[in-house]
């Protein structure tokens, strides 16, 4: 299986390192011609405005949209999630429109508001997932056919799946917990069926209690 990590900007090396520990040698992707044979691709964390500019100049938008249309697996973390979305609350950057979600950038404030929090992610098993949110975006609209995998509370999903597309507000690549990467590889291999999880707005969406504990 061929896995790539979009390497135009951001923490692509961290994703490649985690995939390496899972026995997958991932390639750095910077140009459209490097994408043709990929089975799966990760769009890493970074600065979404920068990613957007570089995707446009180097004609990466169309091949990325084609990958999604062909049912190949794509996962976006943080800025990657912003790029996968259909719409964002600002004019800039211009998202790819691949996933049927709406996203708000910098939803928690500035860097001093960045935070870590344990999340309940049902598809990964009973152990909480330690999630790292850095100037993180949040999902404000979840379309039909999009499953919520984790949320801070009923109104704030932070991990979603649509078929073989995955998006997280936070950064599993910054932790030693490889379950999200393993899950993504299973999806890419065609083993990950649609998750049996709560829909947005349900009560069971948050970690351990759902009293709306966001960052302070």
């Amino acid at each position: 299986m061929e896995v790539g990590v979009l390497a135009i900007q951001g923490d692509f090396a961290e994703h490649i390192a985690v995939l390496g520990k899972l026995g997958v040698k991932a390639r750095e992707i910077r140009l459209p011609e490097q994408m043709a044979s990929l089975d799966a691709l990760i769009i890493p964390g970074g600065e979404s405005t920068t990613l957007s500019r570089l995707m446009t100049i180097y004609n990466l938008r169309e091949p990325l949209q084609k990958m999604a249309a062909e049912g190949r697996a794509i996962w976006g973390t943080c800025a990657g999630m912003i790029m996968l979305s259909r719409e964002i609350t600002e004019q800039d950057p211009i998202p790819l429109g691949i996933m049927d979600i709406g996203v708000q950038r910098n939803a928690f404030g500035r860097q001093v508001d960045s935070f870590e929090q344990a999340l309940n992610v049902t598809i990964l098993g009973p152990d909480l997932f330690h999630a790292i949110f850095i100037r993180a975006p949040v999902i404000i609209r979840v379309g039909e056919g999009v499953d919520v995998l984790a949320a801070l509370d009923a109104k704030r999903p932070v991990a979603v799946q649509q078929g073989r597309l995955l998006a997280t507000s936070f950064h599993p690549e910054l932790t030693d917990d490889y379950r999200f990467h393993s899950y993504f590889l299973e999806l890419a291999r065609g083993n990950g069926s649609s998750p049996n999880v709560q829909k947005a707005g349900s009560e069971s969406g948050s970690s351990s209690d759902s009293s709306g504990n966001g960052p302070r």
Partner: peptide, 21 residues
């Protein structure tokens, strides 16, 4: 739910997001 801010992980993590930039 414990929410941690200002940790070294989120400080160093912000720099990780700037890489390649």
């Amino acid at each position: 739910v414990e929410v941690l801010t200002g940790t070294f992980t989120v400080k160093a993590g912000q720099a990780q997001m700037l890489k390649g930039g």
